[in-house]
Design a protein around this nucleic acid. Structure first.
Lengths: 144, 144
DNA sequence: TTTCTTGCAAAGATTTTGCAATTGC
DNA sequence: GCAATTGCAAAATCTTTGCAAGAAA
């Protein structure tokens, strides 16, 4: 994700309005590596922003994903999750605690794949499913 | 997907019951390359099977995916889709007509990845998003 | 007969939508 | 002031669940 200022500028340039809600959502995403869903972002901000509506969160996340400032992940069937890190990387979901983490692969940079099956490829990503180290620990039962 | 007979045997062996509904759902999946969702399977069978309940379709698909006879895809955020082809391959979703097709890659067999980020990897797959050839055709407007 | 499964309806959850009131510019 | 955005509530999915009736073994 670019800096807040850069994105704010991009919004202005495109004619979109810069609202306190949008800034707050952008800030909540910046550097956030938890791959939050709309519900989580809503609760992160609800305290400091009591009037915030969930619809606004959905709208803003959708808009940010449309303009390519965040990536919407489908790895979790339960909810759409969002990743402010637009650099090339993949994800893994722990099927036990359901946290999502980044996976950085050196080999086979799939971002170079531009055509497949006659499709014009717009995006490609790998998904991994597994059990994280913490969830394999029989002693600890913390769910992250 | 194995043959219906083989799966029926597996169900019997595991103590599960072989019902006409389950057979019908298995048959609807066999050789089906459209990556149908629960709703689609329900409607495929509804005519020949008026009493069929959607809950049964959901239950059966979930069970088949649990025992590893079909794969549940997350590529389409709108609905869970199911693939009876358990061989190693990936998928691409046309973001216009929303059909899902198989992608067969020769290189980098990711099925050999068993550990990543300290996770015990249970599954891995690649997702592609793009516009299919038909949707790029300006003359045709058929939505598959 | 015993246990599992079905079907139905209700409930849950996520996400979308309509619209009046509000706010950015 | 105009147009875009917000917030709220209702609606629209998709999916799960509770439970009585029914079917498989």
């Amino acid at each position: 994700m670019k800096s807040i200022d850069q994105i704010v500028q991009k919004l202005r340039d495109s004619g979109a309005k810069v609202t306190p809600q949008r800034i707050a959502i952008l800030k909540s995403l910046q550097g956030n590596t938890s791959h939050p869903g709309a519900h989580e972002i809503y609760h992160l901000l609800k305290d400091d922003f009591p009037s915030l509506s969930k619809a606004t969160v959905y709208n803003t996340l959708d808009m940010l994903s449309q303009i390519g400032e965040v990536r919407e992940l489908t790895i979790d069937r339960a909810q759409a999750r969002f990743d402010p890190d637009m650099s090339f990387h993949d994800h893994i979901l722990c099927t036990k605690c359901r946290k999502v983490e980044d996976v950085h692969r050196k080999d086979g940079d799939d971002s170079t794949i531009t055509a497949v099956n006659g499709y014009e490829v717009l995006g490609a990503s790998m998904q991994f499913y597994g059990i994280c180290a913490a969830c394999r620990e029989p002693t600890e039962e913390k769910v992250n």
